[in-house]
Design a binder for these strands. Structure first.
Length: 235
DNA sequence: GCGACAG
DNA sequence: ATCTTGTCGC
């Protein structure tokens, strides 16, 4: 059977992740203020990904700017290699955002909480050279999650479980780049007034879905032809 | 062979 | 991620 992407080599990708893991700055600047936050999330349909970037002013509680990108996926989803599939989509959606105007980037997915300590948030953080945090709804394999919610992997702390506010679904927070785990945890906690995702990610999540639906509805104007989609069979 | 396994 | 009906709860 023909591989989906002959040029993608998982062994080399794993090596690249190990290199990236060594480049992470998990200290950051201690006096940093995180006011303008960029949230990155994506939804999927067949071979398409729709990524949305939401720039949010946390102090004013207002959205500053939104941008998006609809792309054809080049890499299949394989656990542990998600970054190679969706980092390009994230970066494309953030193309029109002025990064000098961004204090922190929230990525839907893991950061250092990853088998090779280099999840998609690490990848985005290193490419953009910005403080980045991974926010995931499900855990990856961990060696231990202690009573204070710290996630352990390879003998070190790689993430922290966010259980607030009360009754909210747990989120797994980890460093992407240029920030400490404690700062990452506190920022996400402040950005989560309700039970859902932190505000910028919540907005990006809902928008990416709506934009994908929009793209499908107007598929007769070229999306199906351009991307090779097929309508679902009526049953 | 079976289970694990972000989005 | 996405596919999906009814159902429990604020």
């Amino acid at each position: 059977m023909k591989a989906l992407m002959p040029s993608f080599n998982y062994e080399k990708a794993a090596k690249a992740q190990e290199i990236m893991a060594n480049l992470i700055d998990d200290v950051g600047l201690s006096d940093r203020k995180y006011e303008k936050i960029l949230g990155l999330d994506a939804s999927y349909l067949n071979d398409l990904s729709c990524s949305v970037a939401v720039l949010y002013n946390a102090r004013k509680g207002k959205v500053i700017k939104v941008s998006s990108a609809l792309l054809k996926n080049k890499v299949p989803y394989v656990p542990g290699f998600l970054g190679f599939r969706e980092a390009s989509a994230f970066l494309a959606s953030a193309q029109e955002i002025d990064l000098s105007d961004v204090d922190l980037i929230l990525v839907d997915g893991h950061g250092r909480f990853h088998p090779r300590l280099a999840g998609s948030a690490v990848q985005v953080g290193l490419v953009l050279g910005k403080p980045t945090v991974g926010v995931a709804k499900k855990p990856l394999k961990a060696e231990k999650i202690d009573e204070r919610g710290y996630v352990w992997l390879k003998g070190r702390v790689v993430g922290k479980v966010l259980n607030e506010p009360k009754g909210a679904k747990r989120l797994y927070i980890s460093v992407g780049n240029e920030i400490s785990l404690e700062d990452a945890f506190e920022v996400v906690k402040l950005l989560r007034p309700g039970k859902g995702l932190p505000v910028p990610l919540n907005i990006a999540d809902r928008l990416s879905r709506r934009l994908m639906e929009y793209a499908l509805r107007r598929s007769e104007k070229g999306y199906i032809r351009r991307f090779g989609l097929r309508r679902k069979q009526a049953s």
